[in-house]
Design a protein around this nucleic acid. Structure first.
Length: 223
DNA sequence: ACTCGGATTCTCT
DNA sequence: GAGAATCCGAGTA
């Protein structure tokens, strides 16, 4: 017996949403929902995107030395050179995962790293996935690129390459109309190259934004 | 085949 | 604020 159709919040974002440069797509993703279906019958896990980073493809001048695609396609980053709107999930430090969404038109690479979410539904399940008590703070659940993967149960084996613009996908990005007027722009976190490129975007003063909240930045007005 | 280091997190001090 | 945990992808040979 297949799962009954799930009633997911908001509407699916179209692929065209992602067919632009990462620095354009990244701030537009703020306020959108990342929805992960568990595969079993039950409520999906959902979080609102509150912090992202753009990583630019090698066609840019100058190329982004911090991007995994810096030296061209490899077996690991191949999905980033394909069509936009697909998940790029990779393993880091032997124990964690990070989740990105591919951007640009097919043939050009680029992606947006999801760095923090605000839990929207399935908080108890997220806490269990993180090994925390059900009353854990929202920030403890999904504030950080690998924390959010753990909370939503995202792994490379299951979620890499998934199309986040597909209604039958286990991983989707949806728009529930939550208004976002402004983003804070800062440098990216935890990288060794291009450390001064302003490609990190956050919802200003949001409690679930990860770590370096005290970075100086500029305001970006979104239309 | 072998080395190196990483888009992190947690646990100390 | 520092150090450990811990594995695999990528680069070099």
């Amino acid at each position: 017996m297949p799962d009954s159709p799930k009633d997911l919040p908001g509407r699916l974002l179209p692929r065209s949403f992602f067919e632009h440069s990462p620095e354009l797509v990244a701030p537009r993703l703020l306020g959108k929902l990342l929805v992960a279906l568990t595969g079993r019958v039950g409520a999906p896990l959902a979080g609102r995107i509150v912090e992202v980073e753009a990583y630019l493809g090698p066609h840019n001048d100058p190329p982004d030395p911090a991007a995994h695609t810096h030296r061209g396609p490899t077996p690991r980053n191949e999905v980033l050179f394909g069509p936009a709107g697909h998940a790029y999930v990779y393993a880091i430090y032997g124990r964690y995962f990070c989740m990105n969404i591919s951007c640009e038109i097919e043939g050009r690479a680029g992606c947006v790293l999801l760095r923090a979410l605000e839990p929207v539904s399935g908080r108890a399940k997220m806490a269990a996935n993180r090994g925390l008590l059900p009353d854990a703070t929202p920030s403890a659940l999904t504030s950080g690129p690998s924390r959010l993967c753990q909370a939503l149960g995202l792994t490379r084996k299951v979620h890499n390459r998934l199309d986040v613009t597909c209604a039958t996908s286990r991983l989707q990005v949806r728009d529930d109309g939550c208004p976002v007027f402004e983003a804070l722009v800062t440098v990216r976190i935890g990288i060794k190259h291009a450390v001064d490129w302003p490609l990190r975007f956050t919802l200003p003063d949001h409690k679930c934004v990860s770590g370096a909240r005290n970075l100086t930045g500029t305001r970006l007005v979104l239309k």
